[in-house]
Write a protein that binds this DNA or RNA. Structure first.
Lengths: 101, 101
DNA sequence: GGTGTTGTTCGATTATTGTCGAACAAGGGT
DNA sequence: ACCCTTGTTCGACAATAATCGAACAACACC
C-alpha cells in the first residue's frame, strides 16, 4: 500500500485550505492537535467508516497528516512542525477557535 | 441593494477557509492585501464578469471583504483588522506564499 | 483454518460549487 | 433621451466533493 504523503511544498495552498474547510476534517485536525497520534477509528464524528477513511485520505494527500501502520490499526498524526514552518500561524489561527462559530 | 456583510464572529471558520480555498479568490485577496481598496473590474483573472461577481460575493459573505458603491463602480477592501483580530496569523500565513505552490 | 477487528476501495447517489452567456439595473456622460 | 460602462442576477451546465453500503484486504488471536 502506497501512502501518498506529499512534500508539503508541492501542495498548493488552496489544497491545504480546502482540506481544512470541512467540519469533519477540522474536528479530526483539532483532535490530533490536542491528543497527538491517534488511530483512525478514534474519530467518530457521526460519519460512516468509509467517509472517515475518505476524509483521512484528503488530509493525508493535502500534506496535513502522516499515517503509519500498527497491527491492524493505522496511527495518524499531524505534520505540525512542517506546517508551522511553511505556514507559520495558520494552524494556531484555525485551531484557536470554538468548534463551529 | 443589500450588501450582506456578516459579523465575522458569526461566520464558521470552515466558511472563511472555504472562501480562501480557491485560486481566483486567493488572487483577489492577495491583490487587496497589497493594493488596498480596488474596483471589482480590476480583478481580471481570466474569468467572466459573472464569475468574478460570484467570487466577490463569496468573499463578502464569508466576512473577508467590504464593498461600497462609488458611481457605477464598486470598491472592495479586505477586512484585515477584524480578520487579524479573530484569526491572528491566518492571512499572513496564507498570503506569504507564492501564487500556487 | 476460522473469526473478529480495523481500514480501504468500489460504485452509486446526492449536494455543492465554478463557470458561462444573456438579461437586467444603476450611473455617468454627451 | 441615448448610450456606454460597471456590476448583479438568472438559469443552465459541468466538475467536484461528501456520503453511504457492500465487498475486499491485512492482521491478530484462538
Amino acid at each position: 500500500m502506497e501512502l501518498h504523503e506529499p512534500d508539503l511544498t508541492a501542495v498548493p495552498v488552496t489544497s491545504v485550505l480546502a482540506a481544512l474547510a470541512d467540519d469533519v476534517r477540522l474536528q479530526i485536525v483539532r483532535t490530533l492537535a490536542e491528543g497527538g497520534e491517534s488511530a483512525c477509528g478514534s474519530f467518530d464524528f457521526g460519519v460512516s467508516k468509509a467517509t472517515r477513511s475518505h476524509h483521512l485520505r484528503v488530509l493525508r494527500e493535502a500534506g496535513l497528516t502522516r499515517t503509519r501502520a500498527a497491527g491492524t490499526s493505522r496511527l495518524v498524526r499531524l505534520r505540525r512542525d512542517e506546517l508551522d514552518r511553511l505556514y507559520p500561524g495558520l494552524l494556531d489561527a484555525v485551531l484557536g477557535t470554538r468548534t463551529s462559530a
